[in-house]
Design a protein around this nucleic acid. Sequence first.
DNA 1: AAAGTGCAAGAAATCGATTTCGTCAAGCAC
DNA 2: GTGCTTGACGAAATCGATTTCTTGCACTTT
Lengths: 326, 326
Amino acid sequence: MATIYEVAALAGVSPATVSRVFNGNTVSEEKQRLVRDAAQKLGFTPNKTARRLRKQSSEVICLLVPDIENPFFTALARGVEDRAQESGFSVVLCNTDDDPAKELRYLQIAASEHMAGVILSPASDEVDLGAIASLGRPVVAVDRTTPYPVDAVKIDNRAAGIAATTALVEAGFRRIACIAGPAGIEETEDRYLGWKQVVSARKTMVRDGYLQHADFRVDGGRAAMNALLNLVQPPDAVVTTNNLMAIGALQALHEAGIDPEDFGVAVLGELPYLLPPPVSVVQVRLPARHLGRTAATMLLERIGGDTQPLRTVVLRAEIARPPLTL
Amino acid sequence: MATIYEVAALAGVSPATVSRVFNGNTVSEEKQRLVRDAAQKLGFTPNKTARRLRKQSSEVICLLVPDIENPFFTALARGVEDRAQESGFSVVLCNTDDDPAKELRYLQIAASEHMAGVILSPASDEVDLGAIASLGRPVVAVDRTTPYPVDAVKIDNRAAGIAATTALVEAGFRRIACIAGPAGIEETEDRYLGWKQVVSARKTMVRDGYLQHADFRVDGGRAAMNALLNLVQPPDAVVTTNNLMAIGALQALHEAGIDPEDFGVAVLGELPYLLPPPVSVVQVRLPARHLGRTAATMLLERIGGDTQPLRTVVLRAEIARPPLTL
DNA sequence: AAAGTGCAAGAAATCGATTTCGTCAAGCAC
DNA sequence: GTGCTTGACGAAATCGATTTCTTGCACTTT
């Protein structure tokens, strides 16, 4: 790895001049050529670490997601990465497992690594953005929001909940339950509120026990579905507020020997490669990749010095009806 | 962000002593306490960038995979990340999209970022590991191997191919086709050879047109399956050499109106959340997460100075029969 | 008691870039 | 011709840690 000094020596100029050549400053044609030739000959690549130390910032952005094995976040990460790449940025991807301690650890790393900014889907409401905030590094919240004053990109979750529930109503279902996420998480709370709004509008549809809370995972969805099926008057359809819980619910239905034709399932999120698609499954497609791309774009704008007021971008989910075209 | 100098000033010692306290060198009890108290008070975190510049290395490892949206690589990444975390390392995850140019770009970044090492699933046989190799940074190839002399972790692909094919034979299928990956990619080539070995052992099972090559994606699998179905004597079962192509194949079967009960499908890899599991699908579980964890372990050993001869670890895949317990 | 040994800890060099500051010369106005 | 602006570019400071070199003191050893 050749350094700027070796290039300078070979080109017969000062190191400062070499730096200027690669940073678009005023250098004469003549010396530009000399420097570039020398750099070429030595296979010179600027040392990112030294540059980062001096500039107190780097071309790396940090992406914190709860679970990279969830296809939703994978797609989101992909969107971030694609956009970052276009601007010459790298992405460090970290799993928080919805654990605030892990999250904090990664945020500290982001700070001490001089990363240019952070995109995160906060594990809890009490994220401590103090460290990066005090460094003036931009932060964008994605999918979930935070009490901190940062840019955000989210989905219109209430509308998505309404769309999902309405689709079931239109399909003729009348006893529609809901499997919601943990209480207090805004993201799924809004989706549940969408369900509630539609259901409440028709008195006959309101029933006790039709709201189940579960964690975000497959097993939680299965347990909740089983609880619903054990009610005296079980529902004939269900809205699940994320993709993994839907899988759990479908598993429970399958195990209970219920024909998917007879039972409506509306999913907020995408079921990966579901095959064959049960006729009565409604998916509300969440634009995960686009969410990531938008967040990255906003972050890069801030990194570039954009100082406009805080923004929250709300993306609309679109409904996909069966038959699904995969 | 407090610096080592501020801590030194507050503790009444020299910066060198502060550094020594945090790096396990000889410092008296007395000063240790002074320094730690001062550091605590200032919320001091060592500046990783400065340290990296001085030490010419960092606690970051670079993971290059062809496609992070493929659940196989997601699980692999998860394994790498978990192991890295345990040792205080961070992981930079990069998508190569099987594009050698992208791959090269990321390898250069890894080098100029002083990353501690690289784990990669090479996009092509002609990966240029020159840059990192010349820096003496360790490299581990995962899932696929390279002509370069580096450690590797892979799956016993031929055995997996044999197991998948044998399972179909045992289930009574006799006209077994194979949807293989692009010719020349060792990984799927070996799986296809496993199929070939089993089929060739029984003369009556060898037929023209039963070997299809496709890219690694869903659409490729679907096209290949359609081609198979259009043969004069179509197969009654198929072995697909990766997970995405299997999904494509299942789609094609579904679209052709073929009852999954009547057609055997053996998959090398896991079908995510397939529901309900068609009775005649055989999955050979590839231990993706473990693959990642093993690769990370080997890399960390090398980073730690391990100089034993090159190793190739081969992991055995295990077969999973329906009914699948998800 | 003089010389040798060991160790804690400060001073200063170092990693490799960027950036400020200052110099020098050319160009221009009066 | 003198004074002033402007631009190219070298010298040196800087980012914040680690590490080598050095010093000074306490403690042996003969």
